[in-house]
Write a protein that binds this DNA or RNA. Structure first.
Lengths: 343, 343
DNA sequence: GTTAGCACTCTTAGTGTTAGAGTGCTAAAA
DNA sequence: TTTTAGCACTCTAACACTAAGAGTGCTAAC
């Protein structure tokens, strides 16, 4: 299985040509690419070997060769020469992100859009994992005779609010009591530690007003859980429709998969760190066949971190895209740390 | 231009057959549909007349006829017999919506998804117009040495929050002063009345701490403006890709148009009330050609109202879809009123 | 191990043909 | 005057056929 140097060169050339054109690559064209260092017959022999080793396949007898997933894997893991970002594109990215909001969630959303734009793929991000962050502040604010606003702030700077309805009229003392109880119980606690059981305990502790507060407590638990789970943001789906490799059916099934946020979240959070490339055909999901996912992680000082990645056709310019994605992750990490540090 | 009764029947039959099959309709098939009340030759003559009047067109000489936009217009405005909702589908809709959240924004979002599911089209809604609603509560809550959470509640029960960064460290007295000032100035005021000028006046009134509060004031104005403008929610875009009338290019350009939320918002809010059907080819937007938009409005007791509609192929089952949409609008109005009334 | 040459295969584009669907027209019938 | 039957005509879709071109695999020579 050891591939000789020439074979590797041929394989690289085929992959790069295929990435560019999307067409099968023939021996004649390869002679040019390799600067006539070998004849077409030699190249054909090597190609035949590469095909039996599973790196190449033929759409039909008299067509050129197409790299298989195995070939892409090899290319991405060792053959590929990363294309360093030009000063100009660094600048462009910097520009796109520096205008972003000071709200961390918005920053990530805007970064996601920018990434989609820069790479021409769909971009997917998760908001920072909040499992390890804690509750910084809780407020229950009256907003009507029977409604209140529930506000939750986490140590990583995320803000979540929702309207909560009570079953009966509420008054200020009730809310004050609720407020104090919630704050006393949960302030500084990690989000992951808030359990329904604990909250039910509070219901008892609140005594006669406990029952009246039940809807708020339920809403509070939901709010905490909602805050704790990383949210998945998807941008630039339309880019996929623009790419010639996606015909309608494939695009539809991919987009349909991407709209199932939980599945997507699992894919993204499944790995611990570093860059990861998942080639569609390697994954068990048939919807991902013909597509490729590149994910990496950004991290906050507070310990939280999140995923950022792109999804596009298998035939993607990895050498240029991967450094871009990494630069995005770095920049987001830096900006978020800045936000947190003097937050 | 007066069309005789038979011609109208023929036209209706053509439209309905075309809606069902998507194929050109021929005279022979029409003989069956009209229960042999006329011969194919007669029908052909009438069809020729309808074609010269601009109601029908031929893809090519030896094909059947396809209804034009003019025909659809006539059909929708007067020919069509609305298909009343069955008890079962009423129930289904009721079911889908009753499980929805008590937060009005979520309710509308979930309704939008349900509508897309029920109609098989893309659904589009706007959150209630907040121009006429007023500020019910404002809170600035400290969340870090230099950050605070800004919270805005409106009379219609909407909740908006955002993180706001200060340029220097903040303390409780500062925030209390800011809070009091904002509340005193804006509580009960309609959202539309909040102007940058007024806020800048406050900056002066706040005296020495005014400058320190500037970021919060800017954020406040942004938050108000953001709350005031109706938000456009889009669901079920994938449904469009599933429909055979949309090939890739048409779908792409439509989805691309739909992603421009401001344009969409303009289209939706352009009319005052009642149901409206916009046939794509009638609109100046080339992206909408071949598509059709049906919009109506839902309303709140508080005076605010919003749009709800669907977007799908021109060849749509209007007779069944329109009553469904109207039922959605009614139900949402009712649910929102319930929420507001004891809110 | 590499190369030139050549027969072979397969795709693609173009052409011709045919069956079928549907029309428009004309002349007769109501 | 309106409706109908009949028929010639047109156009499409499907199929088969052909020729050109691209690319391979194999063999024999270098």
């Amino acid at each position: 299985m050891e591939l000789g140097e020439r074979k590797l060169k041929i394989l690289s050339a085929i992959i790069e040509a295929y990435i560019q054109s999307g067409e099968p690559v023939g021996s004649k064209a390869l002679v040019e690419m390799l600067d006539h260092t070998a004849s077409s017959a030699t190249i054909r022999n090597d190609m035949a070997d590469l095909a039996t080793d599973g790196y190449l396949e033929q759409p039909h007898t008299s067509a050129g060769r197409i790299p298989t997933a195995k070939a892409f894997r090899l290319y991405i893991d060792s053959l590929m020469k990363r294309q360093p970002l030009t000063e100009k594109s660094r600048h462009e990215i910097e520009e796109l992100l520096s205008g972003a909001a000071s709200d961390p969630e918005r920053l990530i959303e805007e970064a996601s859009q920018a990434l989609a734009e820069v790479t021409g793929c769909a971009a997917v991000t998760t908001t920072p994992d909040q499992q390890s962050s804690s509750i910084r502040r809780i407020e229950v604010l009256r907003s009507g005779t029977r409604t209140a606003a529930l506000l939750l702030m986490t140590s990583s700077g995320m803000l979540r609010s929702r309207v909560c309805r009570f079953d009966s009229d509420i008054d200020s003392p009730l809310l004050e009591r609720l407020n104090n109880t919630l704050s006393a119980e949960f302030l500084g606690q990690p989000l992951s530690s808030v359990s329904l059981a604990q909250v039910q305990g509070l219901l008892v502790a609140l005594g006669e007003v406990g029952l009246a507060c039940a809807p708020a407590l339920t809403a509070f638990v939901e709010l905490v859980q909602e805050s704790a789970e990383a949210e998945v943001l998807l941008s630039g789906q339309l880019n996929l429709l623009r790419h010639p490799d996606y015909e309608l059916e494939r695009a539809r099934s991919l987009l349909s998969f991407l709209s199932q946020r939980e599945l997507l979240a699992n894919m993204l959070t499944a790995h611990s760190g570093g860059l990861r490339v998942v080639l569609g055909s390697e994954s068990p999901r048939p919807e991902l066949d013909g597509s490729s996912i590149i994910v990496t992680r950004y991290s906050l000082t507070g310990g939280g971190d999140g995923s950022i990645g792109i999804i596009g056709p298998l035939r993607m310019d990895y050498a240029a895209t991967i450094p871009r994605l990494e630069y995005f992750a770095q920049t987001i990490s830096r900006l978020l740390r800045q936000l947190m540090n003097d937050g």
